[in-house]
């Protein structure tokens, strides 16, 4: 599952159209289609954290799932141009905590630090030591990371910010939607990058219960049999043949636990020789 998280509805609008997402039932503004789920958190850190946590807790997540937080930001560096920046460090101004998402695979070149505060950044009112090189500002990023980290590892979270202003001359909703629209091809590349970064083989579970039962096992013996079979499977040791032979020779199923212990020991000696 791919979770796209935006703060504002006009950030989400072009994504909803592009990915043909439809509104899901329930109190949260969640839109989805296929592998994509889009969450609109609302503005500010409280909304971002509570909505993110509430949304993610509804899913049975796997190691291949990830989230991408996308949205507009203000630049604290006049040298940064209005294009997407990949965030390598998020600093929460209220708690003084820093967060570091893993950047192992990406198509984006520009990177920046993100400061997340509770208020809209206005250059003339700010007490930040401006200008700050390679730094941008938003109100949600750190909160999304904090809530997301309950569910995801640092390699499963990505933060991309689109510079929309420098703390003055704020963009209109229409301009914000246009920025997002322009970004969609890059977002698609980043989704592919995150798929690579979070690639995980589906977890294969080996059901050993039927084999375990043949030994009339205690709980501890069950664990030992399971571990032995798991190892043999990974090491390419053909344990099935041994079990089959024991069955054919009438050695299994065991008649009692003592005999089961003996058979397990014999099996272990044979398989781990």
């Amino acid at each position: 599952m791919i979770f796209l998280i935006t703060a504002l509805s006009f950030e989400a609008k072009p994504l909803i159209t592009h990915f043909h997402l439809s509104k899901q039932e329930g109190s949260l503004p969640v839109f989805s289609a296929g592998e994509i789920t889009l969450l609109v958190t609302g503005s500010g850190p409280m909304n971002a954290a509570s909505h993110t946590a509430a949304c993610l807790s509804r899913f049975e997540l796997t190691p291949s799932d990830f989230l991408i937080n996308i949205g507009i930001c203000a630049s604290l560096d006049p040298g940064l141009e209005t294009k997407p920046v990949l965030i390598h460090k998020l600093s929460d101004l209220s708690s003084d905590r820093d967060y570091y998402p893993d950047l192992l695979c990406t198509s984006l070149r520009e990177e920046a630090r993100l400061l997340s505060g509770a208020k809209v950044f206005r250059a003339e009112e700010s007490d930040l030591p401006l200008p700050m090189k390679d730094t941008v500002y938003d109100m949600e990023g750190a909160a999304v990371y904090h809530a997301g980290s309950l569910f995801f590892g640092p390699h499963q979270m990505r933060f991309i910010k689109l510079i929309s202003d420098y703390g003055r001359d704020f963009p209109s909703p229409k301009e914000i939607s246009a920025l997002m629209q322009e970004f969609i091809p890059m977002l698609e590349e980043e989704i592919e990058a995150m798929k690579t970064q979070c690639f995980a083989l589906p977890k294969e579970t080996i059901d050993t219960e039927a084999v375990e039962d043949l030994f009339l096992p205690s709980a501890s013996m069950r664990r030992q049999i399971h571990q032995l079979i798991l190892y043999c499977t990974l090491a390419g040791i053909s344990w099935q043949e041994c079990i089959e032979r024991c069955r054919n020779e009438g050695l299994l199923p065991a008649e009692n636990r003592e005999e089961g212990k003996k058979r397990l020991e014999e099996l272990r000696n044979e398989l781990l020789a």
């Binding site: 460090k89 893993d102 192992l104 640092p154």
Partner: peptide, 23 residues
């Protein structure tokens, strides 16, 4: 390379739920 300043190395090194294999 991108250089990222941190307070203590443990802030990055000891993060929870990291994927050793992917890293």
């Amino acid at each position: 390379s991108h250089v990222i300043f941190i307070r203590r190395y443990t802030d990055v090194f000891n993060r929870k739920k990291q994927s050793f294999e992917t890293q």
